[in-house]
């Protein structure tokens, strides 16, 4: 058993961090909260590294602020802060709710949204919320920085499109609410067996009277990557929210989603059954929230 790392770096700026990625001994892994990565390293699920690049002190990655009509959330902001920050509560309720369900309070004080997304699991709570909220991600390398839609970061279960030794996930940008839009996040746990959440769902929508003006629905795990129920969204966009349209959307969702059986967690059948209630509940709450403009 060799040490989990030889070199531990704590850069203060993005430039320093990117420079360190070039020069530090490889293999290297960026470390945010570390609650997944360190355990993966300890338990042999992640190949050994020589350098851990602790990004939790990088100024650009720990900002949480309004930027024009966008809300910027640094990738290294602890999720505990996202559960109580007034800007996030007002504009990204689904994210607040998701973050409040990630692990326990002690873990949330170090865990970050960047880590949640970079881990690329198809049902990570924070990821599913961001997906519904229409987040874009800022990715930086020595060549420069670019903004990409969140879903482009995922290649498969646990496989991120980020290059672990050259690219850093810097932050996320979400559109601020405009008045008639709202969001909600819900999930179902199964305490037996291996004790993991078995299904989660986030909905963002814009309401115009009795009509759904726009909507995004994210569900995990419903595919190899975090899943957007785009066909269900189509069924509802521009439509009144009625039993019939919800029924059609549900049907579309069930047809598009690819639920799998996870041994000792949940069968595909159980997930197909649960998603109906979970989707309806989440949709209804988001809809009700959208009735009154945000204070």
């Amino acid at each position: 058993m060799t040490p989990l790392w030889d070199t531990y770096l704590r850069p203060k700026t993005l430039a320093e961090a990117l420079q360190a990625m070039l020069t530090a001994p490889k293999p290297l892994a960026p470390l945010a909260g570390g609650t997944d990565l360190l355990l993966d390293l300890q338990q042999g699920r992640h190949p050994p590294v020589r350098t851990l690049l602790d990004v939790t002190s990088v100024a650009e990655m720990t900002r949480l602020e309004r930027r024009g009509d966008q809300l910027y959330i640094g990738a290294a902001v602890p999720v505990a802060r996202l559960t109580r920050d007034p800007l996030v509560v007002a504009h990204a309720r689904a994210l607040t709710e998701a973050c409040a369900l990630i692990a326990g309070p002690q873990v949330r004080n170090v865990a970050t949204l960047g880590g949640n997304v970079a881990h690329a699991l198809p049902a990570a709570d924070g990821t599913i919320a961001l997906l519904a909220l229409g987040a874009e991600a800022e990715v930086a390398s020595l060549e420069g920085s670019r903004w990409v839609p969140l879903r482009e970061l995922f290649l498969g279960p646990g496989r991120s499109a980020l290059h672990p030794e050259r690219e850093l996930l810097v932050g996320f940008s979400l559109p601020l609410l405009e008045g008639n839009d709202a969001s909600c996040f819900r999930r179902v746990m199964r305490p037996q067996g291996v004790a993991l959440p078995i299904l989660n769902c986030a909905v963002w929508l814009v309401r115009r009277g009795d009509e759904v003006d726009d909507i995004r629905i994210a569900i995990g795990p419903a595919d190899a990557v975090p899943f957007r129920a785009t066909q269900a969204e189509e069924c509802l966009r521009g439509q009144p929210l009625t039993d019939t349209t919800v029924q059609q959307a549900t049907q579309a969702l069930l047809e598009q989603a690819r639920f799998r059986t996870s041994p000792r967690r949940a069968s595909a059948d159980y997930r197909r059954h649960l998603v109906i209630f979970l989707f309806h509940d989440t949709l209804r709450i988001a809809w009700e929230r959208a009735t009154s403009p945000p204070s």
């Binding site: 790392w5 531990y8 704590r10 470390l31 570390g34 609650t35 360190l38 355990l39 851990l52 602790d54 939790t56 602890p78 505990a80 326990g104 309070p105 002690q106 873990v107 004080n109 170090v110």
Partner: peptide
């Protein structure tokens, strides 16, 4: 949670918190 200590005012799990941090 048995390893909980308070770092800069917030409780964290020290068993998985790099000492260098």
């Amino acid at each position: 949670g048995a390893c909980t200590v308070i770092v800069d005012g917030e409780p964290v799990l020290s068993c998985i918190y790099p000492a260098e941090r």
